[in-house]
Computed example of a mutant assay.
Amino acid sequence: MAVALAMPASVQPIGRVLARLDWRADLVTHFQVPALMASIVAAVALWTLGRSRWGAAAMAGLAVIQAAALVRYDLAAPPVAPAPEEKARLKVLSANVLASNREHERLIGLVERERPDVVAVLEFDLRWQGAMGPLRDVYPYWIEIPDGTRGIGLYSRVPIGDDPAPVVVRPLGDGNPALCVSIAFGDGRLNLWVVHPPSPLGPQGRGRGRAELMALAREIASRPGPTLVVGDLNRTEGSPIFADFLRATGLRDSRPGFGRQESWPSWLPMRLPIDHAFLGPELAVVDRRLGPEIGSDHLPMLVEVAPAADSAARISATQRSRSSGSP
């Protein structure tokens, strides 16, 4: 009986151990809330039934660890503060719009209300390209890659630089495209990446998902300067591969101090946080939240960044170094 009660609670932790070896094990790592519930039920049942007090204590300890991993985003303060006298801000709206979604006006209405500096559209197909006329009228700098569920659209109020030129990266040669642009920010520029690695549920994501994500991480890390990455990562922090990606890029999660922000699937009360924003040490998060439903299976994400308090001069210094050709 004790083993039977403990087994459901053990699935997700065992998945974390095996996640780097098998994509199926990685899948179960994302279900942290059900795992926590299973641990609580097992602890209460084992204690109440008197089957195993040691087992109940072990399940309770596991539940504490699992709960701490979930609430840390609400309880922790943002680790980096914005520079108090620096007025530069960049507000980005990232939305996986679902290629089959035809409620284009809901995204356009959200953009009109929020007035972000940059809009990143994922699953950008030809129909979405045709519907984005109102954005092209307001956002003078734009890049469109209509490619079905792999497509990306980017619309910016602030200039997109030619040095370095915008680049489309396909990890492993044939992976989902990722877009990088150098965008004006304060007295300098920052690297803005829009990413959408393949779903682990699809044929391309199975087996090679970690290799493709790590190839993308190496591309991101290879471009010097302040960096902001937004998009649908198709992974949660429950997976050790998520931590591998952050270590390889040298970036940090934008959520501490703003909550876990579960974004998919939008119609369920218990969702997974797979829409993300990551940033380098030169940047601080001013605001980070999810938007309303737009007809997609994802909720849109809004993130606003500013120069960090202890590195406000780095962005302009980096830009001056590039302009002068200094190493």
Rank of each mutant, 00 (worst) to 15 (best):
E114I: 10
R102C: 03
V111Y: 02
A99L: 12
L93W: 06
V111R: 00
E112V: 08
F124H: 08
K87L: 14
A88Y: 06
A95V: 02
A95R: 01
A95I: 03
V92Y: 02
V118I: 15
E103D: 14
L98F: 12
E103W: 04
V111G: 00
G109A: 14
V111M: 01
N101E: 08
A95W: 01
V92Q: 08
R102I: 07
V119P: 00
L122E: 09
R106L: 14
A99G: 13
L122T: 06
V92D: 03
H104G: 08
K87W: 06
N101I: 07
L93T: 03
A99S: 15
D117R: 07
R106S: 10
A95P: 01
K91C: 11
R113C: 07
R115I: 11
D117P: 05
V111Q: 03
A95T: 04
V121F: 05
E112D: 15
L98P: 00
E114A: 11
K87A: 15
P116H: 06
N96C: 09
L122R: 02
L107F: 07
G109N: 11
V119R: 00
L122Y: 05
V111C: 07
E123R: 06
L98M: 11
L107N: 04
E114W: 05
P116I: 03
N96M: 09
P116K: 02
E123W: 02
L98D: 11
S94T: 14
L110G: 02
I108M: 09
E86H: 14
V121L: 14
A88F: 05
A95E: 05
L107A: 03
S100N: 11
E112P: 02
D125L: 04
R115K: 15
L98N: 11
L122K: 03
A95M: 08
E112S: 13
I108S: 01
L110Y: 09
G109R: 08
R113T: 13
V121T: 08
G109M: 00
E114R: 07
A120V: 12
R89E: 14
K87C: 02
E112M: 10
L110A: 10
V111L: 06
D125T: 08
